[in-house]
């Protein structure tokens, strides 16, 4: 499944790296439900959020500057940071 990472830039504790925001990738696997770190970091009662691994090509992330366009980066992203493409 193809997804795009939200290009959102709020303050606070976030586990979605800046270099992947706004980028498109493919869900590699679903991992399960975890405490939402954006609440957990403040010791708030955390909602369970789905975490998935997303695979991005270097070409998508770095454009023409990619070291090797077909190499990939895989990262765990919470689904509330993702939208279907």
């Amino acid at each position: 499944m193809k997804v795009r990472v939200h290009s959102h830039w709020p303050p606070g504790h976030i586990r979605t790296p800046a270099y992947l925001r706004g980028k498109q990738g493919e869900i590699e696997r679903e991992i399960g439900l975890f405490n939402n770190p954006e609440q957990n970091a403040y010791r708030l009662a955390s909602e369970q959020r789905a975490l998935v691994r997303v695979r991005f090509t270097m070409a998508e992330v770095w454009g023409d500057g990619a070291e090797t366009p077909d190499d990939v980066i895989e990262a765990e992203i919470y689904t509330h940071w993702l939208e279907p493409v």
């Binding site: 504790h13 405490n35 957990n40 970091a41 403040y42």
Partner: peptide
């Protein structure tokens, strides 16, 4: 009393 995210949040 704390968790990995609260550790990181203060570090950040």
């Amino acid at each position: 009393l704390m968790n990995t995210d609260s550790l990181r949040r203060v570090l950040e």
